[in-house]
Computed example of a mutant assay.
Amino acid sequence: MTTELAQRPTDLERPSHQPLAGRTCLVTGGSRGIGRGIARELGRHGATVIVNYRSSEDAAHEVADVITEADTEGTAHPIQADVTDRTEIETMRDAVRDAFGPIDVLVNNAGITCDRTFQKMTAEDWHRVIDVSLHGTFNCTQAFYDDVKVADHGRVINISSVIGKQGNVGQANYAAAKSGLFGFTRSLALELADSGATANCIAPGFTHTEMVEAIPDEIQDDLRAEIPLERFASVSEVAGLVRYLASKQSGYMTGEVIDVNGGIDL
C-alpha cells in the first residue's frame, strides 16, 4: 500500500465545526453589503475577523458585535482605514499585527460605483472608482503580502463582478476596475505559488444588497429575466464561496476567476 493510500482514512475523520478557528481574516469594506456577509460567514466558522471600513463606523461595530456575540469561536474587530490611502493601510497593518499577529486571509472587497455614461463621465468619476476597487486592492495586498506568503494556507481573495466580464452601460469605470482584478489575481497567484499561498477571484452577478434593492422594481424584473436561474444571488451564496476559498481545503485552487451569476454567461 502506498503512503498516500495509507493516509487516506484520515479523510473520513469528522471535520471540525469551526474550520477557520485560529485563522485571522481581514475583509475590506466589511461593514456593508457583500463584505458584511463575508465577515459574518468567516466569523461563524471560527475566524478572527478584522472588519475594515472607511466611514461606516456604526455599521462596522454592529457587524463585529454580531460575530463576537454569536455562539461560535469567531471574534471580530472593526478598524478604520481608507484603502486608497497607503499611509492609512500601513497603519492598519501595523495595528492588526500588534493586536493579532500576521493575518492568514485577505479579502479585497472594498469597491464603489459612480455611474455615468462615458460621454458624461469625468476624470474624477473615473479615478474615484479605479482608486477604490483597483488601487485599493493593490495597496492592501502589498501591505499584507508578507503575512499571506508566510502563513499556513495563506489566501488572497478578490471580489470582482460580472460587470468586469460583460461591461455595462454607464459603468466603464467600474467594469475597467473589476476586470483589472482578473489579471491581477492570476499574476499574484503565480508569484505566491512557491510559498503554497493562493490567490483567487470571485465575480458575483447581481446580488441582494442595499445597492441592488435600490434599483426600481421594473428594472430588477428586466435584469432577472436575463438570468437563467431567474433570480439574484443571496449574499450567503457569495460568502459561502469565500469561506471555502479561505479554508485549507481550497489549497489546490489558485489563479481562478469564479463566476457566481446564475448562469448569465451561458
Rank of each mutant, 00 (worst) to 15 (best):
M1I: 11
T2W: 04
L5H: 13
L12E: 13
P19V: 14
G22H: 07
C25M: 04
S31D: 08
R32S: 14
R32Q: 13
G33S: 09
L42D: 00
L42F: 07
L42S: 06
G43V: 05
R44Q: 13
E57Y: 05
E57W: 00
A60E: 09
E62V: 07
A64I: 06
D65K: 11
E69M: 13
A76E: 04
H77N: 02
Q80V: 02
D85T: 05
E88G: 10
D94Y: 11
G101D: 09
P102C: 03
Q119R: 11
K120E: 14
A123Y: 12
A123F: 09
E124K: 09
H127W: 12
V132N: 11
T137F: 04
D146H: 14
D146F: 11
D146G: 10
D152P: 08
G167D: 04
N168E: 11
Y174K: 09
K178W: 02
S179Q: 06
S179D: 08
F184A: 01
A189F: 01
D194H: 15
S195L: 11
G196L: 05
N200V: 03
C201V: 05
I202Q: 08
F206K: 13
T207R: 00
H208L: 10
E210T: 12
E213K: 15
Q220Y: 00
E226K: 12
E230A: 15
Y252S: 09
G255P: 13
I258W: 04
D259A: 06
